[in-house]
């Protein structure tokens, strides 16, 4: 019984300590100043994280634009159009790739992707676009494997019904199977979203980390996570508290997303 409460105790500990370090700071600076000011100069006592919030949002949005179409297309193709035995080798392969450490993805972004963008599209290379593509690839396995599971969970009788009405395989998929698997697919996308917002090391390496509001996808940005990790090494006093306050904001965003994902998954369970 005591052991069983370990997980929730740990969660409480984490939330408590992050909040204890970060929240007083937010109130001292003022919530609006902290969240909406665009000046981040810890040395001058200016702590506005709006550029980082914008950075996280842009990068995550980009990751979704890259990762979701690819992941969904892959999931539909793998679960509907290829034989079982091929599926049985490809799906584990994709999940194995989910195990590649984020630093490796980041490094590939720096070595391969950033030079390509710099050369053909302009800008510094290390940019929203580079980060979006790398994060999109990183969330692919998550989006794909959860979507595959929920597409597989659609009862075959649905498909048979559609076929019997004379629908083609594709009509069946986009009119029957995908709507039926929708909540599972959404849960997968939200989990991917959470992973993209929370990702740190890969983003530090490819996003360029400039503290300013971006004007184009080719501009460099700094995300909330990058802000914490970059300055944690040397921050002290107020500055360190500011980083914990950034952590509080990040934690709240992630908790909200997880809550939505969990509700989506639970609703799917209820419907059956």
């Amino acid at each position: 019984m005591a052991i069983a409460l370990s997980a929730i105790t740990m969660l409480v500990l984490i939330v408590l300590f992050i909040i204890k370090e970060g929240l007083p700071f937010i109130f001292k600076i003022g919530i609006t100043d902290f969240l909406l000011s665009t000046d981040w100069e810890p040395a001058a006592g200016k702590y506005g994280i709006f550029p980082m919030i914008a950075g996280s949002l842009w990068v995550t949005l980009g990751a979704i634009l890259v990762g979701v179409p690819l992941g969904l297309a892959g999931a539909v193709f793998l679960s509907e159009f290829i034989p079982q035995w091929a599926m049985k080798t490809i799906k584990p392969t994709i999940e194995l790739l989910a195990g590649i450490p984020s630093v490796v993805y980041g490094f590939i972004g720096v070595m391969v992707l950033a030079p390509l963008i710099r050369e053909y599209l302009g800008g510094p290379g290390l940019s929203i676009m580079a980060a979006s593509i790398i994060l999109g690839i990183m969330i692919l396995p998550t989006v794909m494997s959860i979507s595959i599971d929920s597409i597989k969970a659609v009862p075959n009788s649905y498909r048979e019904g559609a076929f019997a009405l004379g629908a083609t395989h594709w009509q069946t998929i986009h009119m029957v199977v995908i709507p039926a698997a929708r909540s599972g697919i959404i849960a997968g996308i939200i989990l991917g979203l959470g992973r993209a917002i929370g990702e740190t090391m890969a983003v530090i390496m490819v996003a360029g980390n400039a503290v300013k509001l971006p004007n184009s996808p080719l501009d460099s940005v700094r995300t909330l996570t990058a802000n914490i990790a970059l300055e944690m090494g040397y921050a002290t006093g107020m500055h360190r508290q500011a980083l914990f306050a950034t952590g509080v904001v990040l934690l709240i965003i992630i908790m909200l997303l997880n809550y939505i994902a969990m509700t989506a998954i639970r609703d799917r369970g209820k419907k059956k």
Partner: peptide, 13 residues
């Protein structure tokens, strides 16, 4: 919830 927390938060904590 613990499963969804990003690693940088674990690092901070």
């Amino acid at each position: 919830c613990l499963a969804g927390i990003p690693s940088i938060i674990f690092g901070l904590f």
